[in-house]
Amino acid sequence: MQNHFSLLHRSSERAGILDYCKENGIAFFAYMVLEQGALTGRYNEAHPFPAGTGSGRSRSDKGCSALYCGGRCTCKGT
């Protein structure tokens, strides 16, 4: 089984997919574990995602340049 999974995107865990895989001997392979560089420590409010990239667009469209602002800006932490 392969699914999107990282410290920021844990829906596989909440949905019980990881438990199901473990209980049934199914290997789980995560992709985007570093969220396209977001979890490397390279990007922050002083060094936002590059304009024109998928990550840069998704955050700037919401009015936020931070990796995860905790809802302290117009993007409401999404």
Rank of each mutant, 00 (worst) to 15 (best):
L67H: 12
Y68A: 13
H47S: 07
E45Y: 01
R59T: 05
K76S: 01
T40I: 00
C64S: 03
G56F: 12
G37S: 03
D19V: 12
S55V: 09
S11P: 07
M32S: 15
Y43S: 03
Q36Y: 10
S65V: 01
C73S: 12
L7P: 00
E23Q: 14
G71T: 13
R59G: 00
G54D: 03
T78Y: 09
M1E: 07
T40D: 03
K22V: 08
C69M: 05
A51Q: 14
M1T: 14
A15D: 15
S65H: 10
T78L: 09
H47Q: 07
T78R: 15
L8Q: 02
D61L: 10
K76Y: 14
H47K: 14
R72M: 05
S55A: 13
E23V: 04
Y43A: 00
L39S: 03
S65W: 10
R10C: 04
P50S: 01
R14A: 15
L39G: 02
G54C: 02
G56C: 08
G52M: 11
N44Q: 04
A15E: 09
F29T: 10
A66L: 04
A30L: 10
T74A: 09
G41R: 04
H4S: 11
L34S: 06
T78E: 13
M1S: 07
L18E: 13
M1C: 01
G41V: 00
R72N: 14
R57P: 05
F28I: 04
M1Y: 13
K62N: 07
R42L: 11
L67V: 15
R10G: 11
R10I: 04
G25E: 05
P50D: 07
S58M: 15
C69N: 07
R72F: 04
G54R: 14
S11L: 09
